[in-house]
Amino acid sequence: MTDTLTSRRQSGTRSLRRGLLPRLRRAVRNTRRPAPARLPPSPVHKAFSLGLAMVSVILFGQIINIVVVSQVQHATAQTRLFEELRTGLAEGSAPLGQTTHDGTLVAPGTPVALLSIPALNLQETVLEGTSSRELMDGVGHRRDTPLPGQSGTSVLMGRAAAYGGVFGRLAGLEPGERFTVTTGLGVAEFEVTGQRRAGDPGPPIPTSDEGRLTLTTAAGPVFLPDGALRVDAKLVSKPVPKAAPVLYPASLTAAELPMGSDTSDLVGLLVCLELLILVSLAAVWSWYRWGQRETWLVFLPTLGALSVLTGTQVSLLLPNLL
């Protein structure tokens, strides 16, 4: 009897497991709340996301332009300027002052000297002019000052970070360091006498038979300048007489002064921005018409090139010593 009851109980348990428990589990599953269906993103949301992606590409292009591309542009320009200067020195046609041999003003961008600073392992072709456009290519000579090696105070200006960052280590020049500047007048040798920033007293005015050179760049954190740094050097070689000046400080524009910005080509910047907007809109249309892969393949190089071109125009508005 006991065995019979035990057998029936086991049989009932098996039946419960086989029949009732699965039905209970299915009922519990059916009572669970179904997950809400995900709605596809709206066209406005897609356009906004794509717009943010395009803006990111443009901003990334600006960063690449100022950090990487500008260095390449500077190196290419220096190669060209050095060849022009070497030819001018060999032919005797290099400028000897503020004017050329026929009496006209030396055009901005003309190579006028070769600066060699062994302590900084620096050799740079110097060109006429100190606006942002000239300082993209190299160290600039302030047009209202005599050439290095002539009597009086000459001024050279260079960038601290972008476009080669030629004068980025200028603060490392110590008093007593010597360097040379080669012009059509010959080789002039200078000796560093000290450094100064805004508010520091300047050196005394040189006499008629003395020469001085001031190297100027941006001071402060990289790409965040807070003023100008000036390194003064005295001429230790024999000074060369200079012709009567044609340009004076009042002859210069604000763009040629330390930390000045060049606003002479705002039309070019406007055209670049318009092209950038048009290409971005075309990329949005292509995204829906062709697809994502085809859009990036076609428009990424175009947007990159326009970003670099626009970045060059924007760089003109930044401080010339940056």
Rank of each mutant, 00 (worst) to 15 (best):
A94G: 10
Q73Y: 05
V55N: 04
L114P: 01
M136P: 01
L59P: 04
L135P: 02
V68S: 06
L122F: 11
L115K: 06
I58S: 00
G103D: 11
P148T: 15
T87L: 11
Q123L: 14
Q98G: 06
R143A: 15
Q71W: 09
V67L: 13
L114V: 12
H141P: 01
L156A: 04
G140A: 08
G103P: 13
G97F: 05
T100I: 06
M136I: 11
L81Y: 05
E124I: 10
L52V: 15
R86A: 14
R80E: 13
L105D: 04
S132A: 13
Q123H: 09
A77V: 12
G149N: 02
P95M: 06
F60I: 07
I117G: 00
T153K: 09
S116C: 13
P146H: 02
L105W: 03
A113W: 02
V139M: 06
S93K: 15
G92A: 14
T100W: 02
S70K: 01
V67K: 09
L105F: 07
A119Q: 11
V106A: 03
Q73S: 10
T153W: 08
G103A: 12
P95L: 08
M136E: 09
S49F: 12
L115G: 09
H101R: 12
S93I: 15
E134G: 03
G129Y: 04
N65Q: 11
L122C: 13
S131Q: 11
E91K: 13
S154K: 01
V112S: 09
L135T: 14
G149Y: 00
E128F: 06
G97V: 08
V55P: 00
P146V: 04
Q62F: 15
Q71D: 10
A113S: 07
S116H: 13
T145V: 09
Q78H: 08
P118I: 14
T99D: 06
I66W: 06
G158M: 01
F48I: 10
V72K: 02
Q150G: 05
V112A: 14
D137G: 10
A47Y: 04
E124V: 14
V55G: 05
A53K: 03
P111A: 02
S49M: 11
N65M: 09
S49P: 01
T100L: 15
S116K: 12
G103N: 12
G158C: 02
E124Y: 01
L89R: 04
Q71K: 07
R133V: 12
G152S: 15
P148I: 15
L135W: 05
R80F: 12
K46I: 14
V57L: 13
L89Q: 05
L156G: 02
I58E: 00
P118D: 08
G129C: 10
R80N: 12
L135Q: 05
L85F: 09
T104C: 04
I63F: 03
P95Q: 05
N65A: 11
S56K: 00
H74Y: 10
P146N: 07
H141L: 14
L59C: 12
I117Y: 00
L81M: 12
P108E: 07
L81I: 10
Q62A: 14
L120W: 07
D137P: 00
G92D: 13
H141T: 09
G97L: 08
T100E: 10
T76R: 13
E84W: 06
L52C: 11
E128W: 05
G152M: 15
L147Y: 03
M136L: 14
A75I: 11
R133S: 08
S151H: 06
G61W: 00
A77Q: 07
G92C: 15
